[in-house]
Design a binder for these strands. Structure first.
Lengths: 259, 259
DNA sequence: CGCCGTCTTGACGAATCTCAAATAAAGTGG
DNA sequence: CCACTTTATTTGAGATTCGTCAAGACGGCG
C-alpha cells in the first residue's frame, strides 16, 4: 500500500540526474567530492591512489538530494549508471508482471544502487528513498572507461557487483530455509551490524520502513511481523516503540538465526 | 541427504584446474576453443571480434571433464576464476554456518559459474556436477587484464555479473511471494525455456536433480514437491515418470505463475 | 481536534511440514 | 546378470505455522 502510494505521488527522478540535473537540487557546495567524502572507505573509491581518485571524481556527479518517497530509478527504466548513497536510506523493490511487489533490500550510506540495470540496459527494480537522502550518480559508460584505465577502479567495480550477488544469496537462504521468527531475527541482526559498521549504535535504531515493508522483504505478512516484534519484546529480546527498536539481547537473537 | 553424501565421497576438484590440471582429464582434442565452440553465442565470447576472441582463447583453459557428483569449487575455498559450462549441468549450493544447505541454482551449458568468489576472494557456495560434465576454466586475473584491453570482454563480464544479480532477484521474488504450486510451475517453465533456448525440447526433459534438491531450491519439502507433481499430472498439466517430465499444458503452467 | 495511515491483537482457516509406511528405482558386489 | 542393499519417491494422517479477516488503538500531520 505504502509503496504504491509513494510511487503514484513521487515525482519521477529516474535517469534524470545524468541529463537534467536541475530536477534534483545540487548540493555540491556542501558536498565534498570522493577524496574528502567520509564514506571513501566503504564506497567505490576504496583504496584508490590519488590519480585514480581524481579521475573518479571527474566521472562522479556531485551529491544530489532525493526527498523521502522519491524514486531514483524505476523498473523498466533505462539504465544510465550507478548511484552511491551518501546519506539517508533507500529500499529497492522488485515488480512482477502481475503487479506483485517485493522489497529486495534496504540500503544505507556507502552502498551502491542500480547494478541490476547493467545486464539488459534496463532496471529491473526501483529504488525509493525512505527518508530525505543524498546520492552521487556515476554514469556507467564513464565508469567502464575508467575501469579500463585504472585497475583499482575495475577491482572495486567487480567487488561491488559480486557483493551484491552474495548479499542476494543470503536473502535467498533466509527466504528458503528460515522460519518467520528466524527471518525477523536475522533482519534485526543484519541492520544492527550495518549500523555498527557505520559508527552508529548497533543496539538502538529507527526502522525507516513500515511493518508491511519489513514483511515484504522477509516474505511475511505485516501482522506476522508485528506479532513477532511483540513476542520478542515479551521475551525480553528487545524493546519496540513504534519504529524505534532497542535490541536488548543480541546474543539470543543471533542464536535464533543459527538454528 | 543426497547432497551431503555426494560431498563426502566426491573427490575435491576445487581450484585445481588452474594449477594442477592433471586431476581433470584434458579433453582438448575433442574440445574446440572459443571461436569454434557451439556455445559462443551464449558464453563469455558473445560478439567478440576476431582479435578479442584470440586473446580470450589464450586465457581460457581447454575443456575439462567433471564427473557426476564432483565439485568444481567449495564454499570457503579460494576463488581463482570463473567456469563456463560446456556440457552437462551443475547445481550451486549455499551452506549456512549451522550446516543448513540450500540449492541456489541449476546451471546449463553456456552459463558461467563462480562469480560469487570475486568479492571476497573466497567462494560462498559450492558447485556440484549433476551429471558428467565439461567446463572451461577462466583464471580471473587474466580475465580482468583482458577486460581492460578489450572493451567487448569487459562488457560481457559485466553483463554476466549483472545477469546473475537479476537471476537471483527472480528467485527472491519466487521465494518471497509465491505459493508452493506457483513455485513448482515457475521452476518447470524456467527449465523449459532454458532447454528451448539451447535447442532442446521445451516440453520433454529429464530432471537432473532429486525431489529433495528441487524442494531445496524452491524452499519446499520433498514431499510437497512430489505431491504437487502428482497433482499437476492428475490435472493434465504434465506427465511424470520418475525424473522424466513431459509438459502437456505450458499455457496453464505459465498462468499459474502469473497469479 | 480529527483524519488517515500504521500498528496491534484475536479468532479462525488454509497451506505446508512432520512423521510414517509402502513402493519404486538405482547402485553394488558376486 | 541377478540378488541385495541403498536411495529416492509416493501417499496418507495429523500437527504446526503462518495467513486471512476483522476490530480497535495509536500517532503524526494538516
Amino acid at each position: 500500500m505504502e509503496a504504491v502510494a509513494a510511487r503514484q505521488t513521487a515525482r519521477p527522478v529516474s535517469v534524470l540526474p545524468f541529463r537534467a540535473r536541475s530536477v534534483l537540487r545540487d548540493v555540491s557546495r556542501s558536498a565534498p567530492t570522493c577524496s574528502t567524502c567520509k564514506l571513501r572507505e566503504v564506497c567505490l573509491s576504496v583504496g584508490l591512489e590519488a590519480d585514480a581518485m581524481t579521475d573518479l571524481e571527474e566521472v562522479v556527479t556531485p551529491a544530489m538530494r532525493v526527498a523521502k518517497g522519491e524514486t531514483l530509478y524505476r523498473s523498466g527504466g533505462r539504465f544510465a549508471g550507478l548511484y552511491a548513497i551518501r546519506l539517508g536510506s533507500f529500499k529497492t523493490v522488485l515488480l512482477a508482471d502481475d503487479g506483485q511487489e517485493q522489497v529486495a533490500g534496504y540500503h544505507m550510506p556507502g552502498e551502491i544502487l542500480g547494478a541490476d540495470g547493467i545486464g539488459a540496459g534496463l532496471h529491473d527494480s526501483e529504488a525509493v528513498a525512505l527518508e530525505d537522502s543524498e546520492v552521487c550518480a556515476i554514469p556507467f559508460d564513464s565508469l567502464q572507461d575508467l575501469a579500463r584505465d585504472q585497475q583499482a577502479v575495475q577491482q572495486n567495480l567487480h567487488r561491488i557487483l559480486a557483493r551484491e550477488i552474495v548479499r542476494e544469496r543470503k536473502i535467498m537462504m533466509m527466504l528458503g530455509t528460515m522460519s518467520a521468527e528466524q527471518r525477523l531475527a536475522a533482519f534485526l541482526v543484519d541492520l544492527s551490524e550495518r549500523y555498527r559498521a557505520r559508527g552508529y549504535s548497533s543496539s538502538e535504531f529507527v526502522l525507516r520502513m513500515t511493518r508491511e515493508e519489513i514483511g515484504s522483504y522477509l516474505g511475511l505478512k505485516l501482522e506476522t511481523v508485528s506479532r513477532l516484534l511483540s513476542r520478542f519484546q515479551r521475551e525480553g529480546l528487545l524493546q519496540v516503540q513504534g519504529r524505534v527498536v532497542k535490541l536488548l539481547d543480541l546474543i539470543t537473537l543471533r542464536q535464533l538465526v543459527e538454528h
